[in-house]
């Protein structure tokens, strides 16, 4: 089974956890890279400035396979590791059905990037958190880039980055990408999350309305039983309840099985038994 190789990969502490097979389908060539980092964010948050600050001129643009959505790719080296950075389309959400959102969602879900950097506008944090919370439902390896801090300062807005990091359970970097402020810290956290030195405890939606909650619990239980490896069963359940065809197909054709739990396994935990699947 193809799963075995991936299970192997997850067994070492600082190994990449991205999904090579699915990344290939998404048109990402990882031949010369160790880790893949996705860059998500709302439109107008200075996401492309962050992208440029991270990659410099080592980038090229093209389209997502089969889609008329622009994709930018670039790379950088940090701590002797080679990172590939993939710019996702700027979206307000991952729940609607626009092509942009589908592309971003599929990349985070199926590509399982080693780190997802979410760029938010510090002056409109509340609105931006909508996307952040949705991303954190899918992946547990993320870094928040609190961009445009200079603008926030000008408007007298302050954001408590430490409290935010505590609430979200992921590293938060205050940055002004235009002035290259915060980029070194961002690089450091990307490295730490990618290599598993920093283990995220991402915020998950606490509760929804009671009638939905009952259905959700029931379905999540069934999904976890059938696919014990997947890291985001509750989110998959939500998508099924919304009738998301892509997820229905992934359940039906077993594509979901290719997804693996990505929290690095610590030494004192039992190894995954390869024969038990």
């Amino acid at each position: 089974m193809t799963m075995n190789t991936q299970t192997h990969a997850a067994n070492c502490e600082d190994c990449p956890v991205h999904n090579l097979g699915n990344l290939k389908k998404l048109g990402i060539n990882m031949a010369e890279f160790d880790f893949v980092v996705a860059l998500a964010g709302n439109p107008n948050t200075g996401k492309s400035t962050v992208f440029n600050a991270l990659t410099g001129l080592r980038q090229h643009t093209g389209n997502w396979p089969g889609k008329t959505v622009t994709r930018a790719e670039g790379g950088f080296v940090y701590g002797a590791k080679r990172f590939k950075l993939v710019d996702l389309p700027g979206t307000y959400s991952l729940l609607s059905t626009s092509t942009d959102e589908e592309v971003a969602r599929d990349f985070i879900l199926f590509g399982q990037p080693d780190v997802t950097v979410i760029v938010v506008d510090a002056t409109r944090l509340e609105r931006n958190l909508n996307l952040v919370l949705q991303v954190l439902e899918i992946t547990d390896r993320a870094v928040l880039c609190l961009n445009l801090m200079d603008e926030a300062k000008r408007h007298g807005i302050t954001v408590d980055a430490r409290a935010l990091a505590r609430d979200l359970g992921i590293p938060v970097v205050a940055a002004s990408a235009r002035q290259e402020e915060g980029i070194p810290e961002l690089l450091k956290y990307i490295y730490e999350v990618a290599t598993g030195t920093y283990v995220c405890r991402p915020h998950r939606l606490e509760r929804t309305a009671p009638h939905l909650e009952r259905a959700l619990t029931e379905l999540t239980r069934r999904i976890s039983a059938e696919f014990p490896e997947i890291p985001n069963a509750r989110w998959i359940a939500l998508r099924l309840l919304e009738g998301d065809q892509k997820i229905i197909d992934a359940v039906r054709n077993g594509e979901l099985r290719s997804l693996i739990r990505r929290t690095p396994i610590r030494q004192n935990e039992p190894m995954v038994n390869e024969g038990a699947v």
């Binding site: 944090l125 509340e126 909508n130 807005i157 954001v159 408590d160 980055a161 609430d167 915020h203």
Partner: peptide, 10 residues
């Protein structure tokens, strides 16, 4: 949730 988090941090 977003509102609650923002209220605590911004």
């Amino acid at each position: 949730d977003a509102q609650r988090i923002a209220a605590r941090t911004v």
